[in-house]
Computed example of a mutant assay.
Amino acid sequence: MTAGRVAVVTGGAGALGAAIGEHLTGQAEVVLLADRDLDGARERSENLRGVEACYLDVADDESVQALVETVERRFGRLDVIVNNAAVTAPRGMEALRRDDWERVMAVNVWGPTALCRKAVPLWSSTRAGGRVVNITSRTWLSGGPIAYTSSKAAVVGLTRSLALELAPFGVTANAVAPSMVATPFTRGDRSEEEYAAFEAKHLAMTPMRRFATPEDIAHAVGYLASEAAGFVTGEVLHVCGGAQLAPAP
């Protein structure tokens, strides 16, 4: 563990965010699980040494500003940002409305952008370097639900752009692209029958014949957030068991 290192994980109340946060305790002195669901984040952080819960709505600029100001006031540094918070929308084009689209883009694309943007003055003043890890999805390669997939493709472009903009501060920016992880978020509003068919299709297209786990994703994030990845930036690491090589189900 690097003494004094501070990490923020958005979407920290979810299964993926919680697993990432727990894994990062091996690299950071303080890990903040940030989420609109503050009670959920608090529940995830219980009994985890060095892990705290805090409120954050990534689509609300004032909320983002408040979080960064709190981190600066309390710790004077911000070493790792994991942009994990995400929402989705109706899957079919005919069911998609403009406000669905705008909500997905506000959370999935503007949220990571805003958080990094607000952190720039802190990175600029400390010159201590840092890591940004964005959670995208293998759907950026294959296609999928229109709003969600478009947002995750945008996150790849955002990651590459951040890599260029943040390099002068010694901050790297990379992305992790998981395949299917069996969580409530993935299940969404599917019926039992629909979800069973969805699982079967994803399993069939995965050469390693299993789904990703939150821990699989957390280990990939941990590498990109570590000192070992200090000269890796602008990359997308697929954690898919080979599913990134297959067409969409």
Rank of each mutant, 00 (worst) to 15 (best):
S151L: 04
R190V: 02
K201A: 15
F198C: 04
S151Q: 08
L203I: 04
E199K: 14
F169T: 03
A197D: 15
V181F: 07
E194G: 15
L203D: 10
K152P: 01
A212R: 07
L141I: 08
L166K: 09
S191T: 15
E192G: 04
V156W: 11
A197C: 12
E215D: 14
F198R: 01
P145N: 08
R138N: 13
P145T: 11
T172S: 13
A196C: 12
M208P: 13
R209S: 13
R138F: 14
E215W: 05
G143L: 00
F185N: 10
T172R: 05
R210E: 11
G188N: 12
A167P: 07
A182T: 09
V156C: 08
L141T: 06
G157W: 07
T206M: 00
S179K: 00
M205A: 15
V181P: 10
G144K: 00
P184I: 03
A163S: 06
T159Y: 14
A153G: 12
L203K: 01
V176Q: 02
S137D: 15
G188C: 07
L158S: 10
A182K: 03
N174M: 01
N174W: 01
A212M: 13
L203G: 08
P168T: 02
T159H: 10
V176G: 03
G170D: 03
K201S: 14
S191N: 14
A177R: 04
S161C: 02
F211H: 10
G170I: 00
N174L: 00
E193Q: 14
E194H: 12
T149Q: 06
A182L: 11
G188I: 06
I146P: 06
A163Q: 00
S151C: 09
D189R: 04
A167I: 01
A175K: 05
A212G: 15
G170F: 02
A167S: 10
T213Q: 02
V155T: 06
W140S: 05
T149W: 09
V176H: 02
P178N: 07
V181K: 03
A163N: 01
S161I: 00
A167W: 06
Y195P: 13
A173H: 04
R210M: 08
A204G: 11
W140I: 04
P214F: 11
F211S: 05
F211L: 09
A163H: 01
A177L: 06
L141Y: 10
F198Y: 15
L203M: 09
I146G: 05
V181M: 07
A173D: 07
V155M: 04
P207D: 13
W140E: 13
T186F: 12
V171H: 05
A212D: 14
V155P: 07
A147R: 00
P184T: 03
H202I: 01
I146E: 04
T139S: 14
S142V: 09
R190S: 06
E199L: 15
Y148M: 00
K201Q: 14
I146W: 05
P168G: 05
E193P: 13
A173C: 07
L164H: 14
A204E: 15
V176N: 03
P214G: 11
F198A: 02
A212P: 10
F198I: 00
T206P: 02
R209M: 09
R160S: 12
M180E: 06
V171E: 06
D189E: 14
A200W: 11
N174G: 02
M208W: 15
G170R: 00
L141R: 11
I146N: 01
E165Q: 14
P214N: 09
D189H: 10
